[in-house]
């Protein structure tokens, strides 16, 4: 592999690492879904796999689509192919994504709607999950609720945080625009204000969203490991979001 193609492969992996599984709110790279990245000049081909043969076609489609878009956004990339392997709808998904069809057009007999509402719903879940993680971090670092809730988006970006806090903040700010609304850094999913008096109850309420994603993530990792005969990744007994961010070595590129 030439220096250029190695560098480009790394760029592709970096682009893919920003694509998430909408249900689990984790990167497809960290989840070990990517099985191959091939770069040939300006042509890129990416192959991926999922924990079961039955994994929801709509989510699979979203991920394949997002991967293609992420790689195609690299300035040098000209031809991008993303191929799913070992799934009950491989053909419909691969052909549909290659032809840049909407989900509804790829599955004309089955799909009654496009994927935008699912994308938004899971985007908002991701928003809540990341917000909760950041809020709990800030509270644990000693910031007072009133101070936190007065921050604007710009103000939050300027707060001095440790390494973990910076990661959590970056992840949250990626999703913050989805909730729209006020200039405040922290709002509900509808874009309305959160006040210090109700912060505890609010956190209690959104907590189930984060827990759900983590629980599903643990299940999917286990199923993926069994399906492909690999040892399950080692995590602490009670992994937190940050452990998921740190873990998972990138899979060996297909050379």
């Amino acid at each position: 592999m030439t220096v250029t193609s190695q560098a480009r492969t790394d760029e592709v992996r970096a682009a893919l690492s920003r694509v998430t599984d909408p249900e689990l709110d984790e990167s497809v790279v960290e989840l070990n879904f990517i099985t191959g990245i091939e770069v040939n000049g300006a042509d890129v081909s990416v192959t991926f796999r999922l924990p079961t043969y039955w994994c929801a076609a709509n989510f699979s489609y979203l991920m394949a689509y997002d991967m293609r878009d992420a790689v195609a956004a690299l300035p040098w990339a000209e031809k991008v192919s993303v191929v799913l392997d070992d799934h009950m709808f491989v053909d419909a998904i691969n052909d549909g994504v290659a032809a840049q069809k909407d989900f509804a057009d790829a599955f004309p007999a089955e799909a009654a709607m496009d994927l935008s509402s699912i994308r938004l719903n899971f985007g908002l879940k991701s928003f809540e999950r990341r917000q909760e993680a950041l809020l709990r971090h800030l509270l644990a670092e000693g910031f007072a609720p009133a101070v936190i809730l007065q921050l604007t988006v710009d103000g939050l970006a300027r707060v001095s945080l440790n390494e973990e806090g910076q990661k959590l903040r970056a992840r949250y700010l990626e999703r913050r625009p989805l909730a729209g609304g006020l200039a405040a850094a922290f709002v509900t999913r509808d874009g309305t204000e959160i006040v210090p008096e109700t912060l505890t109850a609010y956190l209690r309420n959104v907590r189930r969203v984060g827990l759900n994603a983590e629980f599903n993530g643990a299940l999917c990792r286990g199923l993926l490991a069994v399906r492909y005969g690999e040892a399950p990744p080692v995590l602490p007994a009670e992994p937190e979001l940050i452990d998921f961010l740190r873990m998972a070595p990138p899979p060996a590129p297909r050379l």
């Binding site: 079961t52 039955w54 994994c55 929801a56 076609a57 709509n58 009950m88 709808f89 599955f107 089955e110 799909a111 009654a112 709607m113 699912i118 719903n121």
Partner: peptide, 12 residues
């Protein structure tokens, strides 16, 4: 729960 053929809409 985990469904057999979760294709259309949001089967979950």
């Amino acid at each position: 729960g985990p469904t057999i053929i979760p294709l259309d809409r949001d089967a979950f």
